[in-house]
Simulated assay, not measured.
Amino acid sequence: MSSAIPWQQRLSTGTEAVQDEVIRWYQETPEGQAYVPGMIWGTLQTEAYATVILTQVVDFLGVPNDVPAGVAKRMQRQQVLHDGRHHYAVVLGEQALYTNIGGPDVMRGQIERLLRDFALPSLTLGILPATARMDLFPVHGFHIQGRGDRVHIELVSSSLDIEEPAEVELHRKAFAVLSGAAAYGEEAEQILRKALTFWGGEVSAVRR
């Protein structure tokens, strides 16, 4: 079974209520997998980066502007990275490190945040190099929730939840291919540091 809800319906009262919903999802599902090809995964976003993203959402969709409240909730959701009860496997496309969200200052702060959080026990972070070869055609981003019983996809006009087992299994198969082609450990860290240098950051200033 699949269900799609238009963003303008979900965000009819602003961004805060949806962020509350996401917090509940995370609290109820101690494990998750996410593939995010072109931007930073929401649970790793800095306050400045999240502010730009949610402002763009509000402006594009014409929904009530409660960006500060929505950002505060997004920051609250990140507590799952530090409570010792959750684990997330995340693959970011290398493009996510170069998609210009808010300008160089915002991007430097964001990549420094990734470098600080890189070794968190709750996080397995892979970076999919732009030149990586894969046995899979290019696919959209998606989030496999819990132990793999639901897939969440964010489209331009709506959010889509997939629960049909055969479709969920295809997304799990896709994530296995993507994570298999991703860089981890020191190789991923070097990709992050290269991006930090691109945005004018001082690599030596970053400490984990």
Rank of each mutant, 00 (worst) to 15 (best):
residue 117 D to F: 08
residue 166 A to T: 13
residue 161 D to P: 00
residue 184 Y to G: 02
residue 180 G to T: 03
residue 94 E to C: 05
residue 129 P to R: 05
residue 42 G to V: 06
residue 75 M to G: 09
residue 94 E to K: 02
residue 170 L to A: 15
residue 96 A to M: 03
residue 18 V to R: 06
residue 81 L to H: 06
residue 181 A to L: 01
residue 79 Q to C: 02
residue 138 P to Q: 01
residue 4 A to D: 10
residue 83 D to M: 10
residue 28 E to P: 02
residue 119 A to F: 04
residue 79 Q to I: 09
residue 39 M to L: 14
residue 200 G to F: 11
residue 145 Q to Y: 04
residue 14 G to E: 10
residue 76 Q to I: 07
residue 178 L to A: 04
residue 97 L to H: 12
residue 49 Y to W: 11
residue 75 M to R: 14
residue 59 D to C: 01
residue 107 M to C: 07
residue 62 G to D: 09
residue 184 Y to L: 06
residue 50 A to E: 04
residue 129 P to Q: 10
residue 168 V to Q: 00
residue 180 G to I: 05
residue 135 D to V: 02
residue 130 A to L: 13
residue 40 I to L: 14
residue 133 R to D: 12
residue 127 I to L: 00
residue 93 G to D: 09
residue 183 A to R: 06
residue 54 L to Y: 12
residue 150 R to E: 13
residue 63 V to H: 08
residue 204 S to Y: 08
residue 208 R to I: 11
residue 149 D to L: 03
residue 189 E to I: 14
residue 25 W to I: 12
residue 178 L to K: 00
residue 27 Q to M: 14
residue 178 L to E: 06
residue 180 G to N: 04
residue 108 R to I: 10
residue 205 A to I: 06
residue 53 I to K: 00
residue 155 L to F: 06
residue 70 G to Q: 06
residue 51 T to E: 13
residue 77 R to Y: 11
residue 68 P to N: 11
residue 2 S to Y: 12
residue 139 V to W: 02
residue 47 E to N: 07
residue 9 Q to Y: 15
residue 51 T to Y: 05
residue 95 Q to V: 13
residue 96 A to V: 05
residue 203 V to D: 15
residue 116 R to N: 01
residue 77 R to F: 13
residue 196 L to A: 11
residue 139 V to G: 00
residue 208 R to N: 14
residue 166 A to Y: 06
residue 77 R to T: 14
residue 122 S to Y: 05
residue 198 F to T: 15
residue 150 R to W: 04
residue 137 F to P: 00
residue 11 L to Y: 14
residue 94 E to M: 04
residue 57 V to F: 05
residue 96 A to F: 07
residue 52 V to S: 11
residue 206 V to W: 03
residue 184 Y to Q: 00
residue 88 Y to T: 04
residue 33 Q to T: 09
residue 22 V to P: 00
residue 88 Y to P: 00
residue 52 V to P: 05
residue 141 G to A: 00
residue 112 E to H: 01
residue 124 T to S: 11
residue 183 A to G: 04
residue 8 Q to M: 13
residue 193 R to W: 10
